[in-house]
Amino acid sequence: MAAGNRTWERPTVFRRREVKWAVYVGIVGFVLWSGVGVGADPARIAQGLGSAGSLVGDFLPPSATPRQAQRIADKMLESVAMAMVSTLTGIVLSVPIAFMAAENLSPKPLYAINRGFISISRAFNAIIVGIIAVKAIGFGPLAGILTITFKTVGFFSKLLAEDLEDIDMGSVNAVRASGASPIQTVLYGVVPQIIPRFAGLSVYRWDINIRTSTIIGIVGAGGIGSVLLTAFNRYDYQYVTAILLAIIAVVLVAEGVSAVVRRRYT
């Protein structure tokens, strides 16, 4: 039974111990290489963090002249308005795209095209979309609406398409068997199954859109972001803090509203 001094080592998820060490060495090597690549030398970090204290001092207390405060309010309202409009346009456009991107409802070529569109929309950060939109149609909130609409369509139609692929085809077939036209089939067989998720997703996306709309002004696509960038470039750091507080407040309110509505109505 007791066969002398037995040893024990924790079994590893890698097949052999050498593999484990090789993976660890690889990770450490990659991190060091990345560190060198981004120029993260300790002296520079220490120097940066050393001056962080005084920089943070420059940012406090938040302050804004009455005119600046008015500008924050105006541009914030523009951000929120952009989010409102583009949530609606985004969702409206998402619905047909979602149906075309659902594998069980759409013919193969159409499916592929719409999935491709969704991938493109999801791959690019709103800032990138924003800068191209601005170049295409000029500065202002319209570019922002275009940007957020484009991002909303990618997000919304992907999730909606997945829901559509998960629906119970039995009840769809039952509706179809009763002699309904294709449109009636969708209305009575498909729509009732996805409505609850639909409402929740809409509010959720609205919340994300509020966040996005406060940023994309940085590239000139409307909203509070442009004010923020200008303040930064003028080294008006106390004003920057005031703007940031306004953004944080709006984002938190939107998150709260979204959470409450989703809990109540879905």
Binding site: G37, V38, G39, A40, R44, I45, G48, L49, S51, A52, L55, I127, R211, T214, I215, I218, L228, L229, F232, L244, I247, I248, V251, L252
Partner: peptide, 24 residues
């Protein structure tokens, strides 16, 4: 909350002031 409410690009604005422009 603060970390989540401030977008990456805004954090980057701040740290560019602190560390100078560049990937750090």
């Amino acid at each position: 909350t603060v970390s989540r409410s401030v977008n990456t690009i805004i954090w980057a604005l701040f740290f560019v002031v602190l560390f100078g422009s560049g990937p750090l």
